[in-house]
Design a binder for these strands. Structure first.
Lengths: 251, 251
DNA sequence: CGAGGTCTTGACGCAGATCAAAGTCAGTGG
DNA sequence: CCACTGACTTTGATCTGCGTCAAGACCTCG
C-alpha cells in the first residue's frame, strides 16, 4: 500500500495496488502543487465531454467509471479508472452522454489542460511517467476489448472478479475480500451482458464455491486458483493489474 | 490528400484522411530526421511485444492491425492503425501472440523508444501533438469497445464499412469506392463475429443495395445515407474519422 | 414495519455460432 | 488460352448461449 505521503484522506478499503507510473515519478509533487484537490461522492458526475475549459483529472483514491450511451441504446460502461489513472475529455469517444462518474467516494486532482501540458514540457521525467501511464490505460482498454469480444459470459464475469480482486482485494481469514463498488446493472454494462444473465452467472460461480457474498456490496474470493481457472485471460490480467508487491501473488 | 511531402512512395488508393495530430505539428521533421523508414509488405509482422530494444513506430501510409490471441482462443484483431498513428509495445495488452501486422503494403518510421522520448522532452510542440494523437487512438479504442459490446452484428458490420469509407474511400461515379485490406476472417476477428455470420450480414447489406463488391478486395458504397442509417454510431464515427476536408461529408 | 429499489430465478425466443457442402476467385502451369 | 488447384467465401441446416419478460425474494432505509 505505498501511497503518496501527501494526500492522506484515502479510504483503506478501496486502495488498490500502487498506481505505477504517476507514483514512481517524484515529479508528482509538481503536479500536486498546481492541482485542485477534489472529493467526489458516489454517483457524482465529474466531467462531460466538451463543456467549457478542458480539465485533466488524476485519480488519487476510489474508483471512477467512464460511461457512454450510443444513440438509442442502453448505457455502457467503457472503462474503470483506478488510483493513478489520468483522465481528460479528449480521451473519450464522441458518443452522446459520455461522462466520468464516481463509482465510490473518490479523491482526485483537477487541473486545467493548459497548465497540465505546461508542466509536461517543463518536466521531462513527469512527461515520461505520463506516457507510461497513458500506455497502461490504453493496454487495459485493449484488454477489455479482447474480453468483451472474445470471451463467454462466464469468462467475462470471472475476469472482472479477478480484476477487482487484484485491485481492491485484501487478504482475510477465508480468502480475499473486497468491496464491489458497482451495482449488478453496472457490472453488466461493463461486461456487455444482460443483468439477468450476469446474476445467473454469479450464482453459478457462488454455487461452485469460488466466492461468497457478504452483504450486498462485499464479496470474498474463497478459491483464487479456481477463479483464475475460469478465465483464459487470468495470467494477462495479473500482469496488467498486480504490479504492487502486496497483491495475491501469481495465480 | 494532404500528405507530408517528404515520404512520397505511398499508394494513392490506401491513403485515408490526413492523420491529424502528427501532421499538424511541423515538429514532425524532427521525428523524421531520427527515424528509420520502413517498408512493410502485406502480412509482414513488425513488432512482437517484448523482444529486444523497444521501438516506436509511426504509420506513414497503408494499414496495420494489432493482433492478439487469448490462450486457447482464436485470434482477435484488436485495433486498426492508420497513417499518423503511433505504436509501441507498451501500448499492447499482455496477451500471448500480440503483434503488429501490415494489412496492406505500408510505410512506417521506426525509432528506438529512448530516442523518441528524448525528442519529446526536447520539443514541446511535438509532445503536445503526440499527446493529442495518443488520446485519439484511445478514443478509437473505447469506441470499438462500445461497438463490440453494444451493437448487433449488422450494426457492427455497417459501422466497419463506414469507418473504412471514411478512411480509405474515394468518390467515384457510382458512389464511394475503397479497397478492403482485410479478409473476411480478419474482419470477423475485428468485429467479434463468426466469419459465416459476417458473410451472411454482408450479403444482406448488398441485397439492400447499400454497397456492391467489385472484385474480392474492392467495394463501392452506393448508398452512404442508407449505410449510416444502419449504425447508431454513424455520427460518432464520422466525428472520429473524418477530420480531413476531402471526405464524404456529414452523413 | 412497510415501501421501493435491487437482485434472483424461471420460461421462452432469437441472434449468432457451428458444421458441412457447394460455389467463386486468383494464380499456376500445361 | 484454358483447365487445375487451393484458398477464400457463400449459403443452408441445426444448435445454443444469452436476451427478454415476468414473478417473486431480498436487502435497506425511512
Amino acid at each position: 500500500m505505498i501511497t503518496n505521503r501527501a494526500s492522506r484522506r484515502t479510504q483503506p478499503k478501496l486502495i488498490g495496488p500502487a498506481p505505477r507510473a504517476l507514483q514512481e515519478a517524484d515529479a508528482l509533487g509538481a503536479l500536486r502543487a498546481r492541482a485542485t484537490p477534489i472529493r467526489a461522492r458516489r454517483h457524482q458526475q465529474l466531467a462531460v465531454a466538451g463543456n467549457g475549459t478542458e480539465n485533466v483529472y488524476v485519480v488519487r483514491s476510489g474508483l471512477l467509471v467512464m460511461k457512454a450511451s450510443p444513440p438509442g441504446r442502453h448505457r455502457q460502461l467503457l472503462a474503470l479508472l483506478y488510483p493513478g489513472d489520468v483522465f481528460r475529455s479528449t480521451l473519450t469517444p464522441p458518443l452522446p452522454a459520455t461522462a466520468l462518474v464516481a463509482a465510490s467516494a473518490a479523491d482526485l486532482w483537477r487541473l486545467p489542460a493548459v497548465t497540465f501540458e505546461g508542466l509536461l514540457s517543463a518536466d521531462a521525467e513527469l512527461g515520461r511517467a505520463l506516457l507510461q501511464q497513458l500506455a497502461d490505460q490504453q493496454a487495459r482498454c485493449l484488454m477489455h476489448t479482447a474480453l468483451v469480444g472474445g470471451m463467454s459470459g462466464e469468462e467475462r464475469a470471472a475476469s472482472f472478479l479477478i480484476e477487482l480482486t487484484l485491485r481492491l482485494g485484501t487478504k482475510c481469514a477465508t480468502g480475499i475480500a473486497f468491496e464491489v463498488p458497482l451495482s449488478r446493472a453496472e457490472i453488466a454494462e461493463y461486461l456487455a451482458l444482460n443483468p439477468d444473465t450476469l446474476s445467473r452467472i454469479m450464482s453459478r460461480l457462488k454455487g461452485r464455491g469460488l466466492l461468497v457474498q457478504t452483504g450486498r456490496n462485499r464479496a470474498v474470493v474463497q478459491d483464487w486458483q479456481g477463479l483464475c481457472a475460469q478465465s483464459p485471460m487470468a495470467e494477462a490480467l495479473i500482469k496488467l493489474h498486480s504490479r504492487a508487491a502486496d497483491r495475491p501473488a501469481g495465480c
